[in-house]
Simulated assay, not measured.
Amino acid sequence: MREVPGGSTTPFLIGRAMTGGYGGADILNGCTIAVEKGEIAVIVGPNGAGKSTAMKAVFGMLRLREGSVWLAGEDISRLQPQERVAKGMAFVPQTENVFTSMTVEENLEMGAFLRRDDFRPTMEQVYALFPILKQKRRQAAGELSGGQRQQVAFGRALMTEPSVLLLDEPTAGVSPIVMDELFDRIIDVARTGVTVLMVEQNARQALEIANRGYVLVQGANRFTGTGAELLANPEVRSTFLGG
């Protein structure tokens, strides 16, 4: 926890009491999403609950009508997404998250566009995390499977050396085996001290690896707790996890 003006404390990353939407309608209705450094936080909930909108608000892709976003004790609410990248955020959207005509290696190099140091050691770390990418580094990303594309997008985000990694539905459309592998890699990344916030449709599996979870309904917090607490909650299980 870090001190903020007024003597209170705030988590490493927090979107506090976020309210906003697109046009005249609010999709978020006072929801709060927080995660500490090196933790994994998961946002789950029914379709239309505002999960991805909450993540986009944290990244600055949605202007809030009310609420604020803090990173490492700093109010970043007014910063544009590219400015938040410079502060250490990396965002992996659910779709259209690779440059299909570019090779795997070129995609990774694009992730390092803001860096002025030698990024080759980071690329080797990405290849160690996702060995298949090293094998296919000269291949166009558009020729890869859906799961491999997700690994490219994940790896490109890591090339920025982020302190916060935002993942929007990272396992959408992949096989159960690839899903398990991606979750394992997310755990590996968090263990290095990177803060991970993700929206995930495979709620039960995501909560199993989460330090904390948020169930959103109609853009507001319905349940909040550790992953284990939410998995053990009968109402969460029956309503949101299929029993």
Rank of each mutant, 00 (worst) to 15 (best):
M18L: 04
T32Q: 10
I33P: 11
G24A: 14
R63L: 13
E39V: 02
S68F: 01
S68P: 01
S52I: 04
R78W: 13
W70H: 15
M55A: 05
F59I: 00
E66C: 06
V42E: 03
R16K: 11
N29Q: 11
A25H: 09
G48N: 04
K37Q: 00
R78F: 14
I33E: 02
I33K: 06
I43D: 00
V35I: 06
F12G: 11
P11F: 06
L64R: 10
S68C: 13
L71N: 12
V44C: 14
A54V: 03
L71V: 06
Q82A: 12
I14A: 15
G45H: 10
F59C: 01
I76R: 10
A54H: 01
G50P: 00
M61D: 00
W70S: 14
G30S: 02
D26C: 12
M18G: 05
M18N: 01
T32M: 14
A25Y: 08
A54T: 00
M18E: 05
V69P: 03
T32V: 10
G24T: 12
A49G: 08
P46W: 09
P11C: 01
E66S: 13
N47Y: 10
K51A: 11
V44Q: 04
P46C: 02
E36S: 08
L71D: 05
G24H: 14
K51M: 12
A17D: 10
M55L: 13
A25E: 11
L62E: 01
D26K: 04
A34Q: 10
P46K: 12
S77F: 14
M61Q: 04
A34R: 05
G60E: 00
T53C: 10
V42K: 05
K56N: 13
V44P: 11
V69R: 01
G48K: 10
I43A: 02
E74K: 14
A49Q: 10
G30N: 05
I14L: 04
A25S: 07
E74N: 15
A41M: 08
S77G: 09
E66Q: 15
L71G: 11
A25W: 03
P81M: 05
L13P: 12
F59D: 02
G73H: 06
P81T: 06
K37N: 02
E39Y: 09
